[in-house]
Design a protein around this nucleic acid. Sequence first.
DNA 1: ATGCCGGGCGAAGCCCGA
Length: 262
Amino acid sequence: MKIASWNVNSLKVRQQHVLDWLKESDVDVVCLQEIKLVDEKFPTKAFEEAGYNLAVHGQPTYNGVAIISKHPLEDVRRGLPGDKSDDQARYLEAAISCQDGIVRVASIYLPNGNPVDTEKYPYKLKWMERLRKHAVKLLAAEERFVLAGDYNVIPTADDVHDAEAWSGDALFRLETRQAFRKIVNLGLTDAYRACHTEPHQYTFWDYQGGAYRKNHGIRIDHLLLSPQAADYLQGCAIDQYVREWEKPSDHVPIWCELELAA
DNA sequence: ATGCCGGGCGAAGCCCGA
């Protein structure tokens, strides 16, 4: 089963990109972030006609996450537990069942957190702690799961073109990396790092200043696997070529393959 | 270079992203 994550930066603008990429990548499941749509405006028909099942947790203008799957979606959960006052659509979870078994998948759009001297940064850190607590609960079930998303976290200096320049940024500052490690160190596997050791592989390049041309990127989109899922990990890749399409998202898809039949 | 792009909203210019 191939499971992907992609921050599309507006599904309205990127709908055809997603349909084209689904066709050629042949992934089973893609977790989308920043769809920037309310549920009613989701292009349900286009994806259903292409043969996909959908779960959507939308919101006007900002945020919004979705899961698009060839296989049926069950036990859909909208929103990250732990704060009833949080109305930002950043978390969606569903169980995907195919003939070789079930994998629980979450689409995550973790808060950016900049500027760090505003309420945005503590919101990010609290959100990460809520995610950690939720991961503890998921792990207790001893199931296969993939937490896929735009984490807005640069895990190490190898995951950014200029670590010095990013040292104070909400995506890279020490507290952020510590909070991320607290999640990973519960026993999750960063699928990309489990399959690749080479540094400076990125999933995001800013639109500004020719960042893509200069390869000034960051690796912030991650697939975190439970031990039960990591046992079946066969490969992981970043589809960087999508960044060269006409009017691209600033993020590219990342996917992993679980060989469930093995 | 915390706004150089690019999107939303809505019809000009501000808010937001990373």
